[in-house]
Structures are given as structure tokens and as C-alpha cells.
């Protein structure tokens, strides 16, 4: 799932990069979320964690924030470029 918040400038950038078949996480810094069922999610290309509790995790990306809500959330691993969250996911929001 890919997401851009965006002005017309960004939409243009997205169009160009998709036509040139360039990876959008590199060209416009889009965050990549890989969701497995409702129990595991891998996030790449993010800036950092803003909030972490068992029910809610807020992650900052280039343009905004991603909020993941659920139950018994656990950060499986956490490095500079990727992180994996496991638990029971309920909602993924782009703020």
C-alpha cells in the first residue's frame, strides 16, 4: 500500500515516476507498508516513532503521520529503515 499526501506538484512527481517505472519510495519518499493478515505489518521508509502504547502506534513519515491502532501491539524489531509490528491490528490511518 502506498500513500502520498499531496499537492499538484506531488501528483506530477508521482505520475512521472510511475511512467518512468521508478520506485516511488525512492523518488518521492513514499512509505511502504506490508500488511500480513491483521497480525503483522512491516513499515519501510519512515522517519521515526511519535507514540507507542499497546493500543496505538503513531509513525512519522516524510509528509505526515500513520496511526496504527489495535491490541497488544509489539514492535518486533526497530531499525533506521524498517520496523515490524505484530499484534491484533484494527485500523491504519493516514493523518
Amino acid at each position: 500500500m502506498k500513500k502520498q499526501n499531496g499537492t499538484s506538484h506531488e501528483l506530477k512527481a508521482q505520475k512521472i515516476s510511475s511512467q518512468l517505472k521508478l520506485p516511488q519510495d525512492v523518488t518521492i519518499g513514499a512509505t511502504i507498508l506490508t500488511v500480513t493478515g491483521n497480525y503483522e505489518i512491516t513499515i519501510e521508509n519512515f522517519k521515526g516513532i511519535l507514540e507507542y502504547t499497546e493500543e496505538c502506534i503513531v509513525i512519522k513519515n516524510k509528509k505526515g503521520m500513520i496511526r496504527i491502532t489495535g491490541k497488544k501491539l509489539l514492535i518486533h524489531y526497530f531499525t533506521n529503515d524498517s520496523m515490524m509490528i505484530s499484534g491484533i491490528m484494527k485500523q491504519i490511518e493516514f493523518l
Binding site: E51, Y52, I75, F78
Partner: peptide
């Protein structure tokens, strides 16, 4: 500011795993 601590760790390429929230703070 434990979230900031985690972000700084990530920036310094320190690998953390099994980060879990408990009553006192985080366990990792």
C-alpha cells in the same frame, strides 16, 4: 520521552527488538 530514545537508537543504527510497553515504560 521514550519514543525519542527509540528514534535516536534507530538513527545510530542500534538494533532493538521485542519492544514491549509495560506499566513502567518499555521493555526491549
Amino acid at each position: 520521552s521514550l519514543e525519542r530514545f527509540l528514534n535516536l537508537c534507530a538513527n545510530k543504527n542500534l538494533y532493538l527488538w521485542n519492544v514491549k510497553k509495560n506499566q513502567e515504560g518499555y521493555l526491549c
